[in-house]
Design a protein around this nucleic acid. Sequence first.
DNA 1: CTAGCATGGATCATCGATAATCGTGAACGA
DNA 2: TCGTTCACGATTATCGATGATCCATGCTAG
Lengths: 214, 214
Amino acid sequence: MAVDGELSRTSLPEQIKDRILAQILAGEYRPGDRLVELRIAEEMQTSQAPVREALRELEALGVVECQRNKGTRVRTVSGAELREMYDVRAQIEGYATELAVRAGAPSKSMLNALLRNMRAAARANDAAGFAECNSAFHRAIVEAAGNGVLRDVWETLNIKARTMVNVSRRTRGLVELADSHRVIIDAIATGQPTTARRVAIEHVLANKPADTED
Amino acid sequence: MAVDGELSRTSLPEQIKDRILAQILAGEYRPGDRLVELRIAEEMQTSQAPVREALRELEALGVVECQRNKGTRVRTVSGAELREMYDVRAQIEGYATELAVRAGAPSKSMLNALLRNMRAAARANDAAGFAECNSAFHRAIVEAAGNGVLRDVWETLNIKARTMVNVSRRTRGLVELADSHRVIIDAIATGQPTTARRVAIEHVLANKPADTED
DNA sequence: CTAGCATGGATCATCGATAATCGTGAACGA
DNA sequence: TCGTTCACGATTATCGATGATCCATGCTAG
């Protein structure tokens, strides 16, 4: 029953979670907005319990914030926190890139293909598609590192980052941003772990937002 | 109502979570054991809902594993995953230590005090207490880094519970393990971020479990 | 006029019951 | 004997309702 017309192959809380997340990413919910369990339950034609579970999962993702007896709201991310996140991501991706090179992967052709997709989305000015391709590119590297724990950490940071993109909208430079991934591919191709690590770190930090108070 | 005789200052799911966690760490539940919601609910004199929530939190901690429609069981952490975790943790703590030094903290006297506690627990052969002090020591450094995102990532690795299982295997050598933290304090005291980072990484990797298949 | 307290609505937390699902083992036929 | 089907017990997933808590509002006393 409930939210999907089809057979539900995924659990109800999962569906609700994805839908709320989509709404947040689409800007239907803004930071600070309250997410009232019974209201959402009614919207989704379910009861309170699955909604509650979905909200807890979103909290684990760092997308929303639950306060005991006081409800759930979309998290507000300050510019400072956003910059913190870039610093951490830089380290994670740097390490992942180093490991990936040591493991002899990923293949240059695969990364090139992913980069082509990214450039296509950039030229089409498709921000959502670009974000998707960008994630896919970096994920490929992290996967190639062969460390499951590292991948999990990266995934949670990635989701968090994407929810924050709303705040700092970059309307320009998508194509340039796509092209800036080229150096990562080249660095990986050199086969030098330390170099690749440094380049990956620099790539992330280069996109770290400036310290403007907002 | 329910599990505590006193006023409950912490939420019911939280209490249940802590209690189950304690039981797992005490070996009352062994890896692979099933955690049946209604049975636990009865044991704790509550209903199913809070138990369910507690189990989800434990899953987020990586202590148990929930399978859709099939229940929850105590997770087996493979040696491989544990080693992966140490690798990631080494990078996280290395970076944290570097940041902490750059920030001019934490104070040597505070770290010394934490180390004294750790040694006391080690001499008393108190594995649980040791894990507590150990995580407090490392947490102090991570906190001193002043990066909230970094701290969250570190927390999700759940060092405390992990070292508990890891440490309880090795019944002796706790004192040496405690003393091995001395070099970290010294490295921080030098005020050289790069050195401190290297030492911190080496410290974690030195305690990374060996590659024995288990 | 203001601080403190009582009251009520909104919402979260918890409950007990029901529906959906899974695994198991017995019954059955080839 | 062996594979298949099916009904049953166990457990999870979901529901609707109730209790508990928070917050805002308005009242009262000083």
